[in-house]
Design a protein around this nucleic acid. Structure first.
Lengths: 335, 335
DNA sequence: CTGAAAGCGCTAACAT
DNA sequence: ATGTTAGCGCTTTCAG
């Protein structure tokens, strides 16, 4: 890399003159500015980012910690984060916690040594189940701002970006009720997560409020991904009269649809299905799955915006919790 | 952040003593070492990464540039990269080119200012179509190592990680031929890419070599993602006798299967389908799609390993091109 | 055994 | 208008 020093030597001026010239300081003569700029251009001078960071105590970089990059939702949020960060002149350093608390802790520690100006994080399942917060508190105490998204916790007082999980599930369940569905099942493989619980509650609340609805709520919890198919087959066997399904994750709805069709169940005539998702599975469904759309890219953008605001303002402003709107998108699996 | 200076002041010793003590230099007395370490621990001292980078001219960070994070293949490679990098004590800075040359160029320039020790890149579609290489050459000339994976170009002389795209398609096509298929269609939405071309060639070569096979090769190119379904429907109309499909991307195979079943075509009895992919779509298929498996995580790991080797050795060793083995995984859509 | 000093590349207050 | 100096946090050579 070309340095200021090298430019200075070639031009027989001092380093500070070169520095000022490149910043078009009016302490410097027009002539010198031009000479300096010309040489800088010629040698493709780029200010050393590390030196700038050391001097300014700012890295123009932030850390992003996500639980699982193979989950399409997080990939999409990341897409939004990257786009917005780049637009604002920031780099992002990615860490994948892989749903593990210790990996999350490690990432926070490693990047907390001056590598980043702040964090955007969605916490690991393990962290959430055990309700661990100390590692995030400790980052905050170092005066490094943190924005949490999607998987958040009330225990920590920081900016957050969420969707109205409760409301979205509530709305979807009410839609099924209005369709006249009599036995509505909730499918989930994320009950352990804050968002999962909220969605379950939305479903329960809607059923509870409905005077017409006679059945008990039915919650089907799918342990791990290998069991999705058998669990859903079992569902149709155990509840042959099911006429409404709300899937609160981004996979089980599609599988429920496939299995229903295979069993000869008419969708949406005799069974409505609403998924939580993720338009990229649509080519794989027929009829097209109706879903609650999560504006993942917007979540990413909003997280970046909150973080940059916080970096600018530090503790000046109040904590913000931004709720991104979801939409119930009716396609072919609802009437 | 706590600094060496602060430790030194509290202990009434010099900064250099503290530094040496923390490194357990034997220039320093046992006693001092212990006092220093105790205080460092207590105050949770962490060496400032930026200062270390400036001093050592190494960042222990590298840049990863991928075309599209929403593509599951790249997400998986990224997973492998992140895991291996973390294991080796490196951070990764992610850039998403979004298939655009200018974004790719920008990322390379932005990170080429001392932010990273090297790059791992899979080039954008636009870059590949226009055969642009200057931006990568110029990084290489700055003595920043580059490893390319998947979408590579012969024009650039650097370490590479690829799969045997030609061989994989060749093997899959031969399998279909051995099944006795008489009209084998190739489905693709990635013909513009190096990997796409190689896969097409593998298919063509296999057909050409087969003395039994009488039909002409049929290449169906799907323009953009919105057209997948209609193109495939058109395929079944135009070629009602199709009895073998090789999909060389990670989406069209699944759609081809769904559409075939919907048309009442018996799979695999009257039609075999092999996809190129991506096990995460399997829950959405029945029978399960047979695929050529791309070991994406291994590709990521191998890329990191090559890069770190190169960073260590600089120009000492020869350029390496590592070919990761694929597997033809027979499931339900082949006999 | 400990400390002073230089230097990584840059900026900026303070001379000249 | 240009140069000198100090300092960001750290390591390392050289003195003491």
């Amino acid at each position: 890399m070309v340095t200021l020093k090298q430019l200075a030597q070639k031009l027989n001026v001092s380093v500070s003159t070169v520095s000022k010239a490149l910043h078009e300081s009016d302490e410097i003569s027009k002539d010198t500015i031009e000479r300096v700029k010309a040489l800088a251009q010629e040698l493709n001078y780029q200010p050393n980012k590390v030196a700038l960071s050391l001097k300014s105590n700012k890295t123009k970089t932030f850390g992003v910690i996500i639980p699982n990059i193979l989950n399409h939702f997080f990939a999409k949020v990341l897409y939004g984060i990257e786009e917005e960060a780049t637009k604002k002149g920031y780099d992002i350093i990615i860490c994948i916690s892989n749903e593990s608390y210790s990996k999350e802790l490690q990432s926070l520690e490693v990047l907390g040594n001056g590598s980043v100006d702040g964090f955007i994080i969605s916490i690991a399942e393990e962290t959430q189940i055990n309700n661990q917060t100390q590692h995030i508190e400790s980052v905050l105490q170092q005066d490094l701002p943190v924005v949490m998204f999607d998987r958040v916790t009330d225990e920590i007082n920081c900016d957050k970006v969420i969707i109205d999980d409760f409301g979205a599930a509530y709305e979807a369940t009410n839609f099924l009720l209005k369709e006249g569905r009599k036995q509505i099942v909730l499918l989930s493989n994320i009950e352990e997560l804050s968002v999962g619980k909220l969605r379950v509650n939305g479903y329960l609340k809607a059923l509870e409020e409905s005077s017409d609805y006679k059945n008990k709520p039915i919650l089907i919890h799918i342990g791990n991904n290998d069991q999705i198919e058998e669990c859903i087959e079992a569902l149709y066997t155990q509840y042959p009269k099911v006429d409404g399904i709300l899937s609160i994750d981004n996979t089980t709805g599609v599988v429920a649809l496939h299995k229903a069709l295979k069993k000869g169940i008419e969708v949406p005539n005799n069974l409505s299905i609403i998924g939580f998702s993720d338009e990229n599975v649509l080519p794989f469904t027929e009829p097209k799955l109706s879903t609650i759309s999560q504006p993942a890219i917007d979540i990413g953008k909003a997280s970046v915006d909150l973080l940059l605001e916080r970096i600018k303002m530090k503790s000046q402003t109040d904590i913000k919790v931004k709720t991104i709107k979801t939409n119930l998108v009716l396609r072919g699996t609802t009437k």
